[in-house]
Design a protein around this nucleic acid. Structure first.
Lengths: 208, 208
DNA sequence: GAGATAAATGAACGTCATTCATTTATTGGT
DNA sequence: ACCAATAAATGAATGACGTTCATTTATCTC
């Protein structure tokens, strides 16, 4: 029969659906409809909805910018990579629970990213044994920060209980005159700088 | 009518159900059954399943150990808090997407934690404006690390594609002779140390 | 032109969260 | 001590949703 469907088409349609309707709008029925096909037809090309999510994840990974690792100083490369990584997954937080636990086996884009990042760390002088744990730590931070980026501006509004949390309430107020301003971006930069400094200290000094 | 149900009882039953059957086993029907009640009865006390998750979250927050902030040096207090926080939510990752976006208003336990942590930062000499972003950064890391702690041991097995990712594959192998060992705990410690060092540098020096 | 095969269909299932009219038991007022 | 008001539990029903499967349809190969 005419091959209307394939994994690439399903992935593209899923991404478009997500960008238009969010992850709540990503149902097998809606996905099928956007492809002009019956829901059950999808199952000839993917084994489950989770499978669709994996396809989307791989596609997103290919969009993460890790190019700096072959051209920039390590610190700058990490920064560029981390910003790009967070920026992309901040709009795809429902995938994070999938990724964080998903073996990289058969995930070529993800592996390509890890390879480039690892090379960057090696070039910067990291001992081999420190590299994977460092990447894992950075990724943990990036994923957590991606959630954060979606927090509402009033997340720290202590409301009726402000009186019982004076120090906290004051610290929140100190961030600005506006009623509620959540410092997601500022916090990301601060933590990332700390991580870069701290992890960077693990490099072997050239000439010692 | 006899008040069989209340929020505390629902919360306790939900926690027990989660610990026995995991989050997949937490359905309104199962929750009702474990309380000897019809599913619809739950809706007299909670407005939705999300509401149940919020109750569970608050309960878990009360179990996070932030006691060090009033007794230990800042570095040690952060470490203790972070380990406890990660340890608890590592077994409750489905809650993280809820927490990260949930206003603290009307979440007394969560607020109590933030108040204690803020006080600890103040006592350690942090400028008020740096405190909330620092906490946000630490929390992001903790949440991300909680996901990580659930990763399977073979998550970094590059499998058939090992040849195309030589540096990464070698870095993974360097972690140990065993086939697959995911360095979640090591990574957590490394990243946390880096964050503590980096953020700690923001303190105002006493006597300058 | 006759299978064989890959792919799409539509009906059906089971699981959920949630709603609602109804019943049941308790409480407060007289 | 009764009655009305009320809070709480019931059970049936609903509408999504992911997934399965027998069947049909179109294309490719010999």
């Amino acid at each position: 029969m005419a091959a209307i469907l394939d994994q690439d088409g399903i992935t593209a349609a899923a991404l478009e659906l997500i960008s238009k309707k969010g992850y709540d709008g990503l149902t097998m029925a809606a996905l099928a409809r956007s492809l002009g096909v019956a829901p059950s037809a999808l199952y000839n090309h993917v084994s489950s909805k989770d499978d669709v999510l994996k396809l989307v994840e791989e596609d997103l990974m290919s969009k993460v910018d890790f190019g700096g690792f072959s051209t920039l100083p390590w610190e700058e490369a990490v920064r560029q990579w981390a910003y790009s990584y967070r920026g992309i997954f901040a709009r795809h937080t429902p995938l994070i629970s999938v990724i964080a636990v998903l073996p990289v086996t058969d995930a070529p884009q993800t592996l390509a990213m890890y390879e480039a990042v690892t090379e960057g760390f090696l070039r910067a002088g990291f001992p081999e044994k420190q590299i994977i744990p460092s990447i894992v730590a950075l990724e943990a931070y990036i994923f957590g920060a991606a959630f954060d980026a979606n927090a509402p501006a009033d997340i720290f509004d202590s409301g009726r209980l402000a009186d019982s949390t004076p120090h906290f309430t004051s610290a929140v107020r100190s961030l600005g005159p506006e009623r509620n301003n959540y410092p997601s971006d500022l916090a990301f930069t601060m933590g990332l700088d700390a991580l870069i400094t701290g992890l960077g200290a693990l490099r072997e000094q050239p000439g010692s």
